[in-house]
Simulated scan of single mutants.
Amino acid sequence: MKGFRFGSNQGAFYILPGQGGWEATYGNETLGEFASPQQAADDLARGLICPHLSEGDDTATLEIPEKLSDWEIVHV
């Protein structure tokens, strides 16, 4: 199986297969469940609340790309 990783200046975000869909994670925190990896990337780019970020709590400030082709592919 494959997943996706984006390394920001705050740490790595992952979009990985979950139970019945896809999960976006940061550290040990699940940021949400999504129907597709593209939906997860879109929502991360537009801004999800992530209280464990050291600067603010919104992922929109991290320049996370919406296009999955800009994410690194990881094998899980």
Rank of each mutant, 00 (worst) to 15 (best):
E33T: 13
N28F: 00
K67Y: 04
D58K: 06
F4A: 06
S69A: 15
L62S: 06
W71R: 04
I49E: 06
P65V: 12
D42F: 13
P51H: 10
T30W: 02
L68R: 03
A45S: 15
L31T: 04
Q38N: 05
G32Y: 08
S69N: 10
S36E: 12
D43E: 12
T30K: 15
D58P: 06
W22A: 02
A40K: 02
T61H: 14
W71G: 03
P51A: 08
G3A: 09
Y14N: 12
G7E: 15
R5W: 07
L48M: 14
Q38W: 08
F6Y: 15
S36Q: 08
K2T: 11
L31V: 08
A40I: 05
K2S: 10
W71P: 00
W22G: 02
L62T: 08
E55S: 13
D58Y: 05
R5C: 14
P37W: 07
V74K: 10
G3R: 07
P37I: 06
S8M: 08
P37R: 03
G11L: 06
G18T: 14
E55N: 12
T61P: 00
S54Y: 11
D57W: 11
E33K: 14
P65N: 14
A45C: 14
V74A: 11
M1A: 14
A40R: 04
F13S: 05
K2N: 09
N28Y: 06
E63I: 01
H52K: 15
P37S: 06
Q19T: 09
E72T: 11
A12L: 02
L44R: 02
P17V: 04
L62G: 05
D58W: 03
E55M: 08
L53P: 11
I73W: 04
F13W: 09
F6W: 12
E23C: 10
D43Q: 14
L44A: 02
D43S: 14
I49D: 11
T30D: 06
S8E: 02
I49F: 15
I15W: 01
G20P: 01
G20H: 11
E66F: 00
L44Y: 01
S69P: 00
G20M: 13
I64T: 05
E33L: 09
A24P: 00
Q38I: 01
E72I: 08
R46V: 06
E55G: 03
L53Y: 15
M1Q: 10
A24H: 03
W22L: 04
I15G: 01
Y14A: 06
L68Q: 03
I49K: 13
V74M: 11
G47Q: 03
T25L: 10
P37T: 11
D42H: 13
P17D: 04
Y14R: 15
I15H: 00
A24Y: 05
E55L: 10
E63S: 14
Q19E: 15
D57T: 14
K67P: 01
S69L: 08
A60C: 10
T25Q: 13
A40W: 02
A41E: 02
L16Y: 01
A35C: 06
D57K: 09
